[in-house]
């Protein structure tokens, strides 16, 4: 009996081993390595000194850590509700009874497949003052303002939020669209017989049916937004004056420009903990839904 079990185990090993190896080396091990690094003064090359929890103490009193964490949180606050409303609105449009619906869906999703470098570059050039596409278009329709989209503290956030929405709303739109198409027709038929108006049906049937997927999107969106980095670094460089610099950019600068890999790992750990809590909440919620 025991021998038979062992043979079965051995048979499974070749199937599991390749995944196991890359997974342990590149996904699991870095978590522990990061903890080790956070307890050391760790340079890009060479010297490693054990310093206990010094890096953690430094983090708590580092104003830039708090500033960039707050910037990232601001990004989450700005983009999450707007993202959900826009995704829902676009999903409703892509679900209209028209021959154009496939075109709508493809158009709303198209930016999502572009690389972050492409969309950032596109944003920089479209948002140039004086001869950028957006400003010249504003002039064409009679608005004689000259907004500095990237150099102005407030407008830089507007630019980042709008570009991010444009770039990433497609995924959430499709999740909403799939949920819309899953709502049974019989619900609308019953409401129609009861004399419900279109608006009443939307409020009392469509919206409640979308709440579960809406919650999933909300949590996925918060998690994804806490990881924001590339488009901000490429569009504003974190500026003007650090007003848009997100935590991951600061981690990168501390690690690679200031050569403080141990301290960078410490701040990564803080981010990791935030994301871990959010993903546990998310997985719990999804399990409950299923």
């Amino acid at each position: 009996m025991r021998k038979k079990l062992l043979i079965q185990d051995l048979k499974a090993i070749p199937y599991l081993l390749p995944f196991f190896l890359v997974y342990v080396v590149f996904t699991i091990f870095p978590v522990f390595k990061g903890f080790e690094m956070s307890l050391h003064e760790w340079k890009l090359v060479g010297k490693v000194d054990f310093i206990g929890i010094e890096n953690y103490k430094k983090m708590i009193s580092d104003p830039f850590f708090w500033e960039t964490l707050w910037n990232t949180t601001k990004f989450v606050i700005y983009t999450t509700p707007t993202m959900i409303l826009l995704a829902l609105g676009l999903a409703l449009l892509a679900n209209l009874k028209t021959k154009l619906k496939k075109f709508f869906r493809a158009a709303y999703f198209l930016p999502s497949i572009l690389s972050v470098s492409v969309i950032s570059f596109l944003a920089i050039y479209m948002l140039q003052p004086y001869n950028g596409f957006v400003n010249t278009f504003l002039h064409l329709i009679g608005i004689q303002a000259e907004p500095f989209w990237i150099a102005d503290k407030k407008l830089a956030w507007v630019a980042i939020v709008v570009v991010t929405l444009w770039w990433t709303v497609g995924f959430n739109m499709i999740l909403f669209l799939a949920a819309l198409q899953d709502i049974p027709d019989s619900l609308y038929e019953a409401a129609e017989i009861d004399g419900a108006s279109r608006w009443q049906m939307f409020i009392h049937i469509t919206l409640p049916q979308l709440v579960p997927i809406g919650k999933v999107i909300l949590l996925l969106q918060i998690i994804a937004s806490y990881k924001v980095f590339a488009q901000i670094m490429l569009i504003t460089g974190g500026g003007p004056g650090g007003t848009t610099r997100p935590l991951i950019q600061y981690i990168y600068e501390v690690g690679f420009n200031k050569n403080l890999m141990g301290y960078a790992a410490t701040m990564s750990y803080a981010l990791f903990m935030i994301l871990l809590i959010l993903s546990i909440v998310q997985l719990r919620y999804q399990r409950k839904e299923n």
């Binding site: 996904t27 699991i28 990061g34 990881k227 981690i251 981010l271 994301l275």
Partner: peptide
């Protein structure tokens, strides 16, 4: 792995 975001372990 679902709970380990690549961005947060990029330094290690």
């Amino acid at each position: 792995g679902l709970m380990i975001p690549g961005e947060a372990t990029i330094i290690p």
